[in-house]
Amino acid sequence: MSGWDHRFEAELLRLGVQPGRARQLTEETAQQAAESAAEPDGLFGPAHLYARHLVSELNTAALPLSGGEKGQVRLRLTGVGKRYRRRTVFTGVDLEVRSGEVAAIVGANGCGKSTLLRICAGLTRPSTGRIQRTRRVGFVPQDAGTAGWLTADEHFTLFGAAAGMAPRRSRSTGEHLAARLAWRPARRELTQHLSGGTRQKLNLVLGELHAPDLLLLDEPYQGFDQGTYLDFWKQVLTWRDAGRAVVVVTHLLHDLQNVDQVYDLGAVA
């Protein structure tokens, strides 16, 4: 096998594809390149990006074409509650999100939407209830979560290293994901000089960089202009179509037309 094949197979394994299946896909890809009498790099592009694309396509193919039954359960909350000393924030939250599904958490200010999302991520402990969740999760907070004195590329390197990715691969994956949000990160621009909307794009890319099965988004469109807002929802639907489970906290009612289920936290708080 060539170096490209090795990198391709390694990325498939990293993305959670079973070893036997990864080997089979690698062989099939190598065969396609041989039939075209072309180098895989020239035919398919960088190995890690093509692996991502292929996994996404395969997940889409495994899902039903429209409505009805969804994929595997990625997140299940049973009777989850949160209490700070004597103040009960919410109680008895039951929620199930499957792959290929977008769930929205809505509710009034202060009803605990962000707290619930942090509980789903594992960053805050619930007071009561049981949580089952897929291992690979991406979390996009409402604000912060980035370092002001680093550039976007350096963030890709940092978060990629945390996920076990080599720096070059992290950067090219980050730039690829940024392009989907119509953003081309400038090489030397520090994060603190980015506009609020662009910083949120960076946040989104960092949440997705390690190809999670479940994306938890806390009002991620703060500061987006109209075009970017539409790009964002297009991206959410692309994630859904690629078999990802997405949970998004929102207070915008017109967002709800894009989602598969709505959980009103205000009703149980």
């Binding site: 991520a121 960053l123 907070p141 980035t146 370092a147 290293a161 945390a162």
Partner: peptide, 11 residues
């Protein structure tokens, strides 16, 4: 703000 996200990413 960054460290919890790095932990979630696998660090």
């Amino acid at each position: 703000g960054v460290d919890p996200r790095l932990r979630l990413s696998g660090a």
